[in-house]
Amino acid sequence: TGEEYIAVGDFTAQQVGDLTFKKGEILLVIEKKPDGWWIAKDAKGNEGLVPRTYLEPYS
């Protein structure tokens, strides 16, 4: 389980392990790392690192 967040901007993977997403996408945050990069999963089940500055809590 995780917390749902909504993307407030588009993000394109910079390196292997990053997750590309579009503004408005709902992501499930699995782990919040202290460096500001969180592990998240998208609706298709893809998992990767995302920058927390692009996310806001979804309710």
Results as ranks from 00 to 15, higher is better:
1 T>D: 14
1 T>Y: 15
2 G>E: 10
2 G>M: 13
2 G>N: 09
3 E>Y: 09
3 E>H: 12
3 E>N: 09
4 E>A: 15
4 E>L: 15
4 E>S: 13
5 Y>C: 03
5 Y>G: 01
5 Y>D: 00
5 Y>N: 02
6 I>T: 05
6 I>K: 07
6 I>V: 10
6 I>W: 06
6 I>A: 04
7 A>V: 04
7 A>W: 01
7 A>C: 08
8 V>L: 15
8 V>H: 06
8 V>D: 02
8 V>Y: 04
8 V>Q: 07
9 G>S: 14
9 G>R: 13
9 G>K: 15
9 G>C: 11
9 G>M: 15
9 G>W: 15
10 D>I: 02
10 D>V: 02
10 D>W: 04
10 D>T: 06
10 D>M: 03
11 F>M: 04
11 F>R: 08
11 F>K: 03
12 T>M: 11
12 T>L: 13
13 A>K: 06
13 A>C: 05
14 Q>A: 12
14 Q>P: 06
15 Q>W: 08
15 Q>M: 12
15 Q>D: 12
16 V>A: 12
16 V>K: 15
17 G>F: 05
17 G>S: 08
17 G>I: 04
17 G>P: 03
18 D>T: 12
19 L>F: 03
19 L>G: 01
19 L>I: 06
19 L>Q: 01
20 T>G: 13
20 T>C: 05
21 F>Y: 03
21 F>E: 00
22 K>D: 04
23 K>Q: 08
23 K>V: 08
23 K>A: 09
23 K>R: 12
24 G>V: 01
24 G>H: 06
24 G>N: 07
25 E>R: 02
25 E>C: 06
25 E>I: 03
25 E>N: 07
26 I>E: 02
26 I>P: 03
27 L>D: 00
27 L>N: 00
28 L>E: 07
28 L>K: 08
28 L>G: 03
28 L>H: 11
28 L>W: 13
28 L>R: 10
29 V>C: 03
29 V>N: 00
29 V>I: 15
29 V>E: 00
29 V>H: 00
30 I>W: 04
31 E>M: 11
32 K>N: 03
32 K>S: 04
32 K>V: 06
32 K>D: 03
32 K>L: 04
33 K>G: 12
33 K>N: 12
34 P>Y: 12
34 P>S: 13
34 P>M: 11
34 P>E: 15
35 D>R: 03
35 D>M: 04
35 D>G: 08
35 D>P: 02
35 D>Y: 05
36 G>D: 09
36 G>H: 06
36 G>V: 04
36 G>T: 04
37 W>P: 03
39 I>Q: 08
39 I>V: 13
39 I>W: 15
39 I>H: 11
40 A>C: 08
41 K>F: 08
41 K>N: 05
41 K>E: 05
41 K>M: 11
41 K>G: 03
41 K>D: 02
41 K>T: 07
42 D>W: 00
43 A>H: 14
43 A>Q: 13
43 A>S: 15
44 K>H: 13
44 K>I: 10
45 G>M: 07
45 G>K: 04
45 G>A: 05
45 G>S: 05
46 N>E: 12
46 N>G: 08
46 N>F: 09
46 N>Q: 11
47 E>N: 07
47 E>T: 14
47 E>W: 09
48 G>K: 01
48 G>H: 02
48 G>D: 00
49 L>Y: 14
50 V>D: 00
50 V>N: 00
50 V>L: 03
50 V>F: 01
51 P>N: 15
51 P>V: 04
51 P>K: 09
51 P>M: 09
52 R>H: 14
52 R>V: 10
52 R>Q: 14
52 R>T: 08
52 R>K: 12
52 R>C: 13
53 T>H: 14
53 T>W: 15
54 Y>L: 15
54 Y>H: 15
54 Y>M: 14
55 L>K: 00
55 L>W: 01
55 L>M: 05
55 L>R: 00
55 L>E: 01
56 E>W: 09
56 E>V: 11
56 E>K: 14
57 P>Y: 08
57 P>E: 09
57 P>W: 07
58 Y>L: 13
58 Y>V: 11
58 Y>R: 08
59 S>T: 15
59 S>N: 11
59 S>F: 12
59 S>I: 12
